[in-house]
Design a protein around this nucleic acid. Structure first.
Lengths: 217, 217
DNA sequence: TAGATTGTTAATCGATTAACAATC
DNA sequence: TAGATTGTTAATCGATTAACAATC
């Protein structure tokens, strides 16, 4: 029965959250919509409109929004007020790079394991000491997921050729959300239930930048 | 004096183009807006609306759009009917993965070189035999760009900490378009002219997938 | 107090969807 | 011919911007 929030709003909310993280202000200080405009590029009107729409009414006239409270509200909306476990499929260059991103921590996201089919990779561990993650064989995926039923998200970094097939397999094993990094737009099979798929292919950005730069006039 | 085309439209145009590439139909066959809906997920009404808006009036009733002509039109709009050279800044895992993407070819994009500061990397070559690209030191960037004034685009894959500083440097050396892959939202300095910056940080997708999956109810 | 900033409404803008005459 | 599909217009929908009273 919740109000529908578009992904555009979610994107902006994530900008506000990132900005707060970066500014690293004391928890009991205040930040105004004007300041948020300055650091995120989102207009102060839009900021207030978003907050109004989402029911964030913690502002104080003349001061703004208390950092501590704002953090709490934003986290709640983004559903990062609790921890989420994810796996990475494909332990190649992209998968390895992802698994080391420290940004996961601030988002309460934990990479629990990587999966691959290459002999050289399976059995190794990726990451700095203290945060090493195992690389397992894709054949063990089904077993792994049934042992860890709280893992609902997979990041897909396999080669283009294997991407659709791997996606289908993930879905059949119970994964509910996938971010696809392979340079190819994937689709979820029609019959499947509420699977969330985000195609984060780099292709799109390349088209955009080329268009922006070369189509002038 | 050209009509303004939003990045949303560009994104869809790239979907149509990708779909055509993938279908690999004979040049003299026809594809309908319904078929395009089927393969891209964009509604046939939207497809025709896009084509109308962009002045693509090559359709034939009862048949659709000739593949050959459609390719030509889409390429023209995307400005990929001519070749673009790009450099990659940061020859780490992400940079190396990017430099090997074959998708560049269909987009008429050529990676000419990678840049890094690490001793182990500078001087090496990345890529398969026949398409090897040199890794150069960032200190040589200015000289390289003045020798290659047709390079206007850089893909930024340096660590988060170095990202903003590197972006500023690129701009000062004449780069006009940057796609940022570092997990941090960058900004172009205010004074600078028409610099095009696309932040393609993976962060956003993660927020979206977590939201989509866990905010239910 | 005067100035700054919120919450909220209304106006504007842009994008998508629906509909259908034309016609191959 | 009948059916399918385009090009185009109008209607709808949603998102952004602007404005301002309330008030700390």
């Amino acid at each position: 029965m919740k109000k529908k929030i578009s992904l555009r709003v979610i994107r902006r909310i994530s900008f506000y959250y990132e900005a707060l993280l970066k500014l690293n202000l004391p928890e009991n200080t205040y930040i105004s919509s004007r300041k948020l405009e300055e650091v995120t590029g989102v207009s102060c009107n839009q900021v207030r409109q978003d907050f109004f729409y989402l029911g964030i009414s913690i502002g104080k006239q003349k001061k703004g929004y208390q950092v501590k409270k704002l953090f709490r509200e934003l986290k709640k909306i983004l559903s990062i007020d609790h921890s989420s476990k994810v796996i990475i499929i494909g332990a190649g260059r992209i998968g390895q790079a992802l698994s080391n991103y420290k940004l996961f921590k601030d988002r309460n996201i934990m990479v629990t394991a990587l999966f691959d089919i290459k002999k050289e990779l399976v059995g190794t561990e990726i990451g700095k000491p203290g945060q090493k993650k195992p690389v397992l064989h894709v054949d063990g995926l089904e077993a792994y997921l049934s042992e860890n039923p709280d893992i609902k998200i997979a990041l897909l970094t396999v080669p283009e050729e294997a991407a659709q097939e791997t996606l289908d397999k993930l879905i059949s094993h119970g994964i509910m959300g996938v971010v696809n990094f392979a340079p190819k737009i994937l689709k979820v099979p029609k019959e499947t239930r509420d699977i969330q798929l985000i195609n984060d292919c780099i292709g799109t950005s390349l088209y955009k930048i080329v268009y922006l730069l070369y189509s002038k006039k």
